[in-house]
Simulated assay, not measured.
Amino acid sequence: MMRHLLTVADVMTKDVVTVAEDTPFKAVVATLAEHHISAVPVLGPYGGVAGVVSETDLLRKEEFQRRQRRPWWSRKARTKAAALTADRLMTTPAVTIKAECTLDEAARVLGERGITRLLVMAGDDLAGIVTRSDLLRAFLASDQEILARVRRDVVDRHLWDDPLAVHVDVLEGVVKLTGQVDKRSTVAFAEQLISAVDGVVAVRNELTWRFDDTTRATGATFY
């Protein structure tokens, strides 16, 4: 059985505020202010995502107007600074992610691209938007919820022959493992799986083992 992981669809904002390509500069600014957001997707005439306008894109105009004589500005930067509508202001193509992607996949894309948000797509349709703060919501799960996830996704899914031999406690998101398993290799494997459970902050692995299967010695090692 596959472990259940939170996906982008579980934490994203579904009611996405958008603007059209011909939305004027001031209307874009007003939209961001009204909805307390820092960026807005731009939709094309047929509903597809054309790009994203962020506060950074908008601030270029003020920077350009106050310091127009900046020879190192690229033509693209000057064009965006002089833009009057969303289609000229926006950054394109927009960075997107599929709704079924996991939170760690989304975090990886955000980190690699150095951005703070991703547009979430379901096929060709805009399904939502996910931000860094949305991804951190996984760590807001209660200790009881994390404990249930660990038991359901790891302990009870045949990782050990005797799940009752493994004791799991959670405090402030830190999972503590105690008990004894048959093989030493299971100890590291257990920690690896539990570390990947959504909401887990860290793992204190105090498991012991009966047989050391990580060495090439012919004799069994007992503890």
Rank of each mutant, 00 (worst) to 15 (best):
M2I: 06
M2D: 04
R3C: 08
R3F: 01
H4R: 12
L5M: 12
L5P: 01
L6G: 00
L6N: 04
T7D: 02
T7I: 00
V11Q: 04
V11R: 02
T13F: 00
T13V: 10
V16M: 13
T18R: 09
A20V: 10
E21W: 07
E21R: 14
D22F: 14
T23H: 07
F25C: 00
K26F: 10
A27P: 06
A27H: 13
V29W: 14
A30R: 15
L32M: 14
L32C: 08
I37Y: 05
P41V: 00
L43E: 02
P45C: 08
A50C: 05
L58F: 01
L59R: 12
L59W: 10
K61H: 09
E62C: 09
E62R: 13
E63R: 09
R66G: 07
R66M: 10
R69A: 10
R69M: 05
A77I: 10
R78M: 10
K80M: 11
L84V: 15
T85I: 15
R88F: 01
P93D: 07
V95R: 08
I97R: 08
E100L: 14
E100S: 14
A106S: 12
A107D: 09
V109F: 11
V109Y: 05
L110Q: 10
L110H: 11
G111R: 13
R113F: 08
I115Y: 06
L118P: 01
L119C: 06
A122S: 14
A122P: 01
G123Y: 09
D124A: 10
D124Y: 04
D124W: 02
L126K: 01
L126G: 03
A127D: 00
I129T: 02
V130K: 05
V130N: 01
R132A: 05
S133F: 09
S133W: 11
L136I: 14
R137D: 02
R137F: 02
A138H: 02
A138R: 15
A141K: 09
A141I: 06
Q144D: 13
I146W: 00
I146R: 03
A148Q: 05
R151W: 13
R152S: 13
R152P: 02
R152N: 11
D153I: 05
D153L: 00
V154P: 05
D156A: 01
H158M: 08
H158T: 07
L159W: 15
W160K: 06
D161M: 01
D161H: 08
D162S: 13
P163F: 04
L164Q: 13
A165M: 08
A165W: 07
H167P: 02
D169C: 11
E172K: 10
G173M: 03
V174R: 10
V174C: 06
L177D: 06
T178N: 03
G179P: 00
Q180G: 02
V181I: 08
S185W: 00
S185I: 07
V187G: 02
A188W: 10
A188M: 13
Q192A: 11
L193W: 04
S195Y: 11
S195W: 11
S195E: 13
S195D: 13
G199I: 00
V201S: 12
A202M: 15
A202D: 15
N205F: 05
N205W: 03
E206Q: 11
L207K: 06
T208A: 11
T208L: 08
T215D: 12
T218A: 12
G219H: 14
A220N: 10
A220C: 07
T221C: 11
F222M: 12
